[in-house]
Simulated scan of single mutants.
Amino acid sequence: MLSLHSVNNDCFIPNWQTPLEKIPWNVLVIVLEGKVDYMINNKRLILEPGDIMFIPESSYRTGKNHNHTLHQKYTVLFHLTKEMRDIPEFLTMDDFTKLQSKNFNYIKHRAEKLFMEIRGNNTCNTFICDGILQELLGSIGRELQSSQVNPMKLKYAQTIQRYIVEHYREAIDINQLAKLIHRSPNYTIEVFKEITGYTPIQYIHHLRIMEGCSLLLATDMTIDNLSNYLGYYDASYFSRTFKKFISMSPKEYRNQESTVSSSEFV
């Protein structure tokens, strides 16, 4: 299982550096802007915007700003037990893994969500954060294996995915997505599911429901308003879809958290 320790947003810190040490966690680094110098197990590398690096626990690591310039990045620190099923291969390796992600907007979006969620005070935040982290690691693992996938299929799926991530709260139909890659609707569904494991519609629902979980805990939006905001325009359909993904209704999800929070003061 995963055990999340912390999520940091290093945002243009002057004279940033981290000393040479044997790190007690696994570290996921996601670089947004600028460049970063790292030395990992006596190997030097420079990370640039769009780079993702996984540093396994017990590695020797040091880092600093590249040529005294500033940078912005997310770092995610976590523990991992090997008993997890279907674990991405890169998480089992003893050396670091570096990737220039073709799905970086999506990775950035999920890292931002993880950074915000871990700062919440609600009990369910831990559950949500573990899910986001697992999704992030799984997406990276899938992309690392994508060299075995037909490059054109991968390009099609990435085009569709980028569009969905940017527009998932809007009304999107399969014909609209098919036009993006100039292929038939049936082919669009098949190639996206082959690469991502989701149909386009399942992926849209997934992003909306994860956003809904956050908003239920962080805001006092009504279910009707939340439904409209997420693009459902029918509160009953939103509730049914939410329950299908989370195994409880939006109201039950919010009330359960309220009950837990109130009990802390009894």
Rank of each mutant, 00 (worst) to 15 (best):
Ile181Val: 13
Glu211Gln: 06
Leu47Thr: 10
Glu57Arg: 15
Ile128Thr: 04
Val165Lys: 02
Val260Thr: 10
His79Met: 14
Ile46Leu: 11
Gln17Met: 10
Gln176Leu: 03
Glu257Ile: 05
Arg119Gly: 06
Gly231Cys: 04
Leu216Val: 08
Leu177Ala: 01
Ile128Val: 10
Glu143Arg: 10
Pro151Glu: 07
Thr196Asn: 11
Arg162Gln: 13
Asp95Lys: 10
Asp130Cys: 14
Lys22Glu: 08
Glu143Gln: 12
Tyr187His: 08
Ala157Tyr: 01
Leu32Val: 11
Phe96Tyr: 15
Tyr60Asn: 11
Val191Gly: 05
Asp130Gly: 08
Tyr38Val: 13
Ile201Phe: 02
Met152Arg: 09
Ser101Leu: 09
Ser147Gln: 09
Asn42Ile: 01
Pro14Ala: 12
Pro24Gly: 13
Arg44His: 11
Thr159Phe: 04
Asn175Phe: 01
Ser58Trp: 11
Leu144Tyr: 07
Asn125Trp: 04
Phe265Pro: 00
Met1Ile: 11
Arg183Gln: 11
Ile246Phe: 01
Arg85Gln: 14
Trp16Gly: 03
Asn122Cys: 01
His205Phe: 00
Ser147Tyr: 14
Gly141Phe: 05
Arg119Ile: 01
Arg254Ser: 06
Lys193Asn: 09
Tyr232Pro: 00
Asp95Glu: 09
Glu166Gly: 00
Thr219Asp: 03
Asn103Tyr: 03
Ala235Trp: 09
Cys213Ile: 09
Ser236Tyr: 09
Pro56Asn: 08
Pro49Trp: 14
Asp10Glu: 13
Lys43Phe: 05
Arg61Ile: 13
Cys124Gln: 13
Tyr233Phe: 15
Gly141Asp: 09
Glu83Trp: 04
Asn225Ile: 03
Gly120Asn: 09
Ile118Ala: 07
Lys193Phe: 03
Ser58Tyr: 14
Ile172Gly: 03
Asn67Gly: 08
Leu28Gln: 02
Pro24Leu: 14
Gln17Arg: 13
Ile189Tyr: 06
Leu32His: 08
Arg110Phe: 02
Asn228Thr: 03
Asn125Met: 06
Lys113Phe: 00
Phe12Thr: 06
Leu32Cys: 11
Thr69Gly: 09
Ser236Cys: 10
Gly141Thr: 07
Met93Gly: 05
Ser3Pro: 00
Asn122Asp: 10
Thr126Ile: 13
Leu99Tyr: 01
Ser214Thr: 13
Leu77Asn: 12
Arg44Phe: 10
Phe127Ile: 14
Asp37Gln: 15
